[in-house]
């Protein structure tokens, strides 16, 4: 703690002193390959060709801090802000370098968010100095932003969310591994005010982004459906059809204990258990707008 804070304080002090900046050309002297790589990135072009603030005009030192001590000391990690694993800076100080420019957009709710409070840094997931290579194992949607530390965004998330990697490989899945959707279609890992870092206010509002037909309002609504899709479905992958958490009729038996057929255990060879189980007949289970659709059969 003391080492990181002291270095941070020293950096902060130096950052105020213009004489401590040496310019990107000086950095290039020793870090030519990194400079050449970075200058072609969107950030490099913005800083080098179209700077909009004094901070951006500092080029490399915008992020790495003033370099005079580093140059005069002949290099070394103690005199410059590094973003690698051996960086001596605490997470929030590294993040502060990025947030100088990136606190807008999806990062508006970063501070105090799940990932910020668990000590993640921007460079836990992103790298800006190196282009990426096409993935072999999981495909992902085309994007203009490929600055991840792993080949795909999903694999970035799987670094910590290891269960999700197993779930997307299940037999019943959304087209994650086919590269049609990815984690950030539903979640904003930079922080949102919503549960589970969802982009929309609720689980259902998220699901309606692709399943607008389920949105209603319907004349006859099935309350657990309208309240939360995950009462019945596991969005990340399931070994049962339709991403269901349990096979029918047991899924429905959990809540339906009236009389007659919903209370009977039902043999495996009946229409209550095979094919789509209960929804063989109650097919409008997500909601019906038919005046005779009270049992979701019309």
């Amino acid at each position: 703690l003391s080492t990181g804070s002291a270095a941070g304080a020293a950096q902060a002090s130096q950052a105020q002193d213009e004489s401590q900046y040496v310019g990107s050309e000086a950095c290039k002297t020793c870090h030519e390959p990194s400079f050449q790589s970075w200058k072609d990135t969107a950030m490099g072009k913005a800083f080098l060709d179209h700077p909009q603030s004094p901070l951006e005009r500092r080029g490399c030192e915008s992020c790495h801090g003033p370099g005079r001590a580093h140059v005069e000391g002949g290099g070394g990690s103690a005199t410059i802000i590094g973003f690698g694993k051996t960086s001596g800076q605490p997470a929030q100080e590294l993040n502060a370098r990025c947030l100088q420019c990136h606190e807008k957009g999806m990062r508006l709710f970063w501070k105090g968010s799940t990932h910020e409070s668990r000590g993640l840094t921007c460079v836990t997931c992103h790298q800006v100095m190196q282009p990426n290579v096409p993935p072999l194992r999981f495909a992902e949607p085309l994007t203009g932003n490929r600055q991840f530390v792993k080949q795909t965004q999903m694999e970035v998330c799987f670094q910590c969310h290891k269960l999700r990697r197993a779930q997307v490989q299940r037999s019943s899945h959304m087209p994650f591994r086919e590269g049609k959707i990815t984690c950030s279609n539903c979640h904003n890992p930079h922080g949102t005010p919503n549960p589970a870092l969802l982009k929309e206010s609720t689980v259902n509002e998220n699901c309606y982004q692709c399943h607008a037909e389920r949105r209603g309002p319907f004349l006859w609504e099935h309350p657990p459906v309208m309240e939360n899709c995950t009462n019945c479905h596991e969005a990340h992958g399931s070994s049962r059809p339709q991403l269901l958490k349990a096979s029918m009729p047991r899924l429905c038996n959990q809540c339906h204990n009236e009389s007659r057929h919903p209370t009977t255990p039902q043999l495996a060879t009946t229409r209550f258990a095979f094919n789509r189980g209960c929804t063989n007949c109650h097919s409008m289970i997500h909601g019906s707008n038919h005046p005779s659709g009270v049992r979701f059969q019309r």
Partner: peptide, 11 residues
């Protein structure tokens, strides 16, 4: 038989 499929909606 006749069944009402998902109605048009807006949000």
């Amino acid at each position: 038989g006749r069944l009402d499929l998902y109605p048009d909606n807006s949000a």
